[in-house]
Computed example of a mutant assay.
Amino acid sequence: MTKTLVVTNDFPPRPGGIQTFVHGLVARRPPGSVVVYAPAWKGAAAFDARQPFPVVRHPGSLMLPEPGVLRRAGDVLRAEGCDSVVFGAAAPLGLLAPALRRRGAERLVGITHGHEAGWASLPVARGVLGRIGDGVDVLTYLGEYTRSRMARALSPAAAARMARLAPGVDERTFRPGAGGDAIRARHGLADRPVVVCVSRLVPRKGQDALIHAWPRVLRAVPDAALLLVGGGPYRADLERLAASLGVGRSVVLTGSVPWEELPAHYDAGDVFAMPCRTRRRGLDVEGLGIVYLEASATGLPVVAGDSGGAPDAVLPGETGTVVPGRSVARVADALTGLLTDPGRARKMGEAGRGWVEREWRWALQAARLGALLGG
């Protein structure tokens, strides 16, 4: 059985989508087949003690492709008897691939996310991404959008070796009936129609577009409520925007919530919406949008923005709809259409749940990683 060293800056207890992705894959590797090398983070000791695999922590909170990190990674590789390496985010730590191969790694896989697609647009970063692609055996991609963007920066041989590997969804955790009634009661939403958005509060995610659309939604559905779940630097701006538009009483911002409460917050909604949009000339882009799939698993129809790979997480017209994230009118129309047609919304939610069960379960993604590693 192959044993894998996972070298990653992105790992719990540090929060984030990449962290969840990498941990979800690692946690499903066979017992005794994986060891993780990751930065120190507050709460790491308690988190690591609960894992069924060893975690070696770097002294600092950031790892770069420099000699000290290479030395420590090489020491773990030899001490643990690893014959393969996975880079939790290919850029930039994938630059260590050739040196780790010389230290005994026989198979090297670089996992990519949204930021590597952004690197492909920048002259210097594009060259770095090309070097990473040449150094690993496989560079993964989330979907067609990220594959096509990155392939332009890779050599023909590296582009030909690319393979799809996306995050999974725990369909047993994210499910209809996951506790939404309690969340509704907590925020005084009772039987109101609820549009929910679960995401970090930053401009790219499009919560401001939802608030701008809300007066139009209320004209069609006067008792509707908008539930914005998550924390982030954009919160004060969003609160001021809701107040200025006169919709503050129907917009609820929960702030950050514990991970274990996320399924219940999805379940509190009737429709899920995150109208993300690309910013900074393509550098700030949605890689996939696992939140759409978690919402689908919970049985909700989804309204997704058209940024980057977000459309890969939606079957348009079947599990939800994709709208231009900058078009308030299109966002409002999509929300109103679903809120005023519960039968259609329910059918889309059921289709989304079925799609997740068929295509997006963690077991399937973990099996794909196993195949890329050769076992």
Rank of each mutant, 00 (worst) to 15 (best):
L165K: 01
A166R: 13
A166G: 10
P167V: 00
V169H: 05
E171A: 15
R175M: 03
R175D: 12
P176T: 02
P176L: 00
G177I: 02
G177W: 10
D181M: 06
A182F: 14
A182H: 13
A182D: 12
I183F: 12
I183Q: 08
R186P: 14
H187D: 09
H187E: 11
L189G: 00
A190P: 02
A190L: 03
R192I: 09
P193A: 04
V194S: 06
V195G: 03
V196W: 12
V196N: 02
C197A: 05
V198P: 08
V198E: 09
V198R: 10
S199N: 06
S199K: 12
V202G: 03
P203S: 00
K205F: 05
K205L: 07
G206P: 04
A209Q: 15
L210G: 02
I211C: 02
H212N: 09
W214N: 08
R216V: 10
V217W: 15
L218H: 12
A220C: 11
V221P: 08
V221D: 02
V221A: 06
P222A: 05
D223Q: 11
A224E: 03
A224G: 02
L227Y: 03
L228K: 06
V229Q: 07
G230D: 04
G231A: 05
G231C: 03
P233R: 15
P233N: 09
P233K: 11
Y234L: 08
Y234M: 05
A236K: 13
L238C: 02
E239K: 10
E239M: 11
L241Y: 11
L241S: 08
L241C: 05
A242K: 06
A243E: 14
A243V: 14
L245D: 05
G246I: 02
V251W: 10
V252L: 06
L253N: 01
L253K: 00
T254G: 09
